[in-house]
Design a protein around this nucleic acid. Sequence first.
DNA 1: GATGAATGAGCGTTCATTCAT
DNA 2: GATGAATGAACGCTCATTCAT
Lengths: 197, 197, 197, 197
Amino acid sequence: MKKDKSADRISHIVNATFRCIVEKGYANVTMNAIAEYAGLSKGAITHYFKSKQDIMIAVLNELDTKLYSIVHKIKEETNSKEDLHYRLGLSAGFQLIRNDFTLMFVIIDFLSQASNNTEYASIIKSFIEKYRSLSSDGVQSGSDAGVYKHVKPGIISTIVVALVLGIGIQRMIDKEQFNFDEISTMAEEIVINYIAR
Amino acid sequence: MKKDKSADRISHIVNATFRCIVEKGYANVTMNAIAEYAGLSKGAITHYFKSKQDIMIAVLNELDTKLYSIVHKIKEETNSKEDLHYRLGLSAGFQLIRNDFTLMFVIIDFLSQASNNTEYASIIKSFIEKYRSLSSDGVQSGSDAGVYKHVKPGIISTIVVALVLGIGIQRMIDKEQFNFDEISTMAEEIVINYIAR
Amino acid sequence: MKKDKSADRISHIVNATFRCIVEKGYANVTMNAIAEYAGLSKGAITHYFKSKQDIMIAVLNELDTKLYSIVHKIKEETNSKEDLHYRLGLSAGFQLIRNDFTLMFVIIDFLSQASNNTEYASIIKSFIEKYRSLSSDGVQSGSDAGVYKHVKPGIISTIVVALVLGIGIQRMIDKEQFNFDEISTMAEEIVINYIAR
Amino acid sequence: MKKDKSADRISHIVNATFRCIVEKGYANVTMNAIAEYAGLSKGAITHYFKSKQDIMIAVLNELDTKLYSIVHKIKEETNSKEDLHYRLGLSAGFQLIRNDFTLMFVIIDFLSQASNNTEYASIIKSFIEKYRSLSSDGVQSGSDAGVYKHVKPGIISTIVVALVLGIGIQRMIDKEQFNFDEISTMAEEIVINYIAR
DNA sequence: GATGAATGAGCGTTCATTCAT
DNA sequence: GATGAATGAACGCTCATTCAT
């Protein structure tokens, strides 16, 4: 029971920190701000996490887990042979960043830290790889099922991930004018047009 | 002559700062670090730039200018009707980030700051727009020349930019294993396959 | 109880700063110096005050409060109709700066900052006005009681304050030789000679 | 001839610095600001003065000289036995600060520095003494001439100076509402009422 | 003479971290 | 468990002063 309470607190702090990053940006998140957002004292934060970096890693892992669960859910849903779109995982990715506007901000924030932080780097790398792997598996299965041409799944999946990231970034910059739906639909069409028989 | 010397110093500081960002990441660039990289005293830096942010904006503008000049050069080169690849501007983008490994790091760094810095945001936005516009023009002219299908150039160009950014990011994360050439070639093929008659 | 401890610390810092101003002069008071005088770290100071200016304003307000309480005390004491001296408030002012040698230093220091700091200016103005008002009331009551001639109390009180400030400044400059008692006695005599029936 | 040019430059710099103090306050005067006000380069300033403090001392000396010349002029004018006012030097002092609004600011600025700067202190002291001495002489001569009572001139002159300083300070604080003329007239009346036969 | 580039000490302030209570 | 007082290193920046040109 105590463990659960502790786990709750930890999760509460992680969520507060996530909101903090979304609103202020990674660089402007302070321990004070996290404490404020969490409605706890500064001391309480350091009681559960030994350093700021530890909190950030927990946030990143939480993000990874959240995204993975969505990815996994989609994998389960796309067993129909005809579903070319879902098989690719492109729609899934677009849906992800479409519904949560803040996701790209946080990903880019961590990405920019990753070059000087091996721990961040490896979590991000693993996440990207998991997503590519999902997409790759989908392509392979589509290929095996005869609905896709014979293509290298690893290459296609990289392109799929690139489109999600690249389109997400451009919407980030362009907020108001970006026609997300039209562009994401076209991106899917282009890829499927290439690999579909 | 004196003016030139001053301009040299300014350019020297901007370059030092760029290297600094590449090696340490934006967040870890300090005035002290810039001074060290530039081989000058801290005071000398503030003699030429009134604030750290001013240096950063100069770096970003310099980056913008550099990229634009390459983009412009490519525009001049692609007057042959048959050159489907260059017309799109995809090859150009890939070449850019292929040859300068550090470019993506710096772009992502500034991008992550942009959400809290309108000045950065507008420079980045303008750069992305310039690139999209180049690509868009290429698509339009290809369309007019009858080598491309009738497509919305604005959409295609967004996808082109997305591919360059998204592939660049993945190489950034994957440094050693990423098969940049194979992936970029395939990305081009997919897009051209879609729009070519 | 905890609150009291915090209030103690704040008061401790304010006192340390006051001593600092007395010994070094406003312009030479640094956060480091305040911390040293208070026997705390620099960080501890900013824990209680968000800026140096905030400390200074606290010092000035404390000064104002201290002086006002003396002024008030004197007001209570001067209900005897015959007490021409106390009624004016001149003796009170002289006593004030006579007993605390450092007072004039600090007042002049803040005064010199006031032209560029509206917050200081308004606190000083309010203090001066409170003192003039006390003096003015005394004159008026003396006038009503028939022990003073009919004079404009507002003018007399300004002259009273001027004498306290002007004599205080000259003692400040002249430290050793200044015959404070003889001069202040004569100043009172001159004013009382004018307004007494 | 060269000497004169140099003297001109020095005087030019001193004047620029004086204006600088008036507009910004002593604490905010920088070498850069002086150079700007003087329309010279920073190097030119240090060519004529070896340090910032040296310029300030020159400004203070210039101020002393200016004031002394006015004081001296008045001394010459007040040989008429009947002129009780001028003899005291009170009118002179009031005229001085009445016509040049900025004078009190600068005097207070230097005064606040004086406690930690013996050079400033001695110049200010000497100026105050010169003024007291003038007033004192006037009182003495008035006493000898039989138009004044027998009083201690040293004491009266201190009170005269106190009134000028104290009234000047109050006008400084009160800018808009201060009724300078009425108050200064009354101040004179009070003193003369006391010492006149 | 005159310039302004360059220096570096010192400023106010921020903030992750420690620890007594 | 929980607090927030306290620390001190590091930050961006200012500015009097020096000195090569």
